[in-house]
Amino acid sequence: MKNPTVVSKSLRVQQWREFWFYFSASKTAVAGLIFLIGVVLMALFADVISPHEPAEQYRQFAKVPPAWKDGGQIQFLLGTDYAGRDMWSRIIHGSRLSLLAGCVVVVLSLSIGVLLGLVAGYRGGWLDSLIMRVMDTIMAVPGLLMALVFVAILGPGLLNAMVAIAITYTPSFVRLTRASTLTELNRDYVTASKMAGARPMRLMFISILPNCMAPLIVQGTLSFSTAILDTAALGFLGMGAQAPMPEWGTLIAENRDLMLSAPWTVTFPGIAILLAVLAINLVGDGLRDALDPKLKRS
């Protein structure tokens, strides 16, 4: 490695610069990141940006087409739905719910997955077998179906949908953590810590875990996008966010009867989902490229 040994600049600056060098090598990842920042800002300032209240029903303006079409009105940029609610405002507010769903799902599944994966990898033996067989069982059932079963048990609603989806995502994190734990466990620095007398807790969380983070971050990002998709799917099936909430999947579901007469009411939420997921996936790919060579070199 041709890293300089004497570095006067701040360490963080150096690390970030290196990260950015590899990340920005991919133009699409940067584009995805810019779009994603846009979505986050949109979610944060939804109340300021959106021209109307998302639930406000302008009965006289029901099913107004987008502004650039015949009969469109400039105040309803992307048209209105069957009850005269502004689609643009609903999509903006929907971004909040989608990002929230993504965050909750990733945080839940990541923390449970890392914990179980670490224990399984470190302890080995019967506990390892037990954890991994349970995870295999969860993985054997298609994810969305599994989530549907959990929601059916827990009852429909956005929160329950998120928990259900988090459960179906846990196995991938467990496997990833266990695999990295097993490789890290044989590294010399872990042996050195053991020789210093470190106990299992210290070895697992202080020595090993930080070195397993890079693949987990990548997997987390990619799960974020699928979580948005699955939340939308559950919403569409009526098992996720419930009707007045402007969740993107629910938007499509409640307007699905108008698919032919007022196609914009389903098209734009669909495009919103598509773009958000695409952007996150692009960022995830960029992250992987930026973090993986780093792993190999250190």
């Binding site: 590294r187 010399d188 620095y189 042996t191 050195a192 020789m195 020595s207 930080p210 070195n211």
Partner: peptide, 16 residues
């Protein structure tokens, strides 16, 4: 008894 390992790149925790 303490030990020094062969590979100086693997024996130090890269995150510490």
């Amino acid at each position: 008894v303490q030990m020094v390992f062969q590979d100086p790149f693997g024996s130090l925790n890269p995150r510490h």
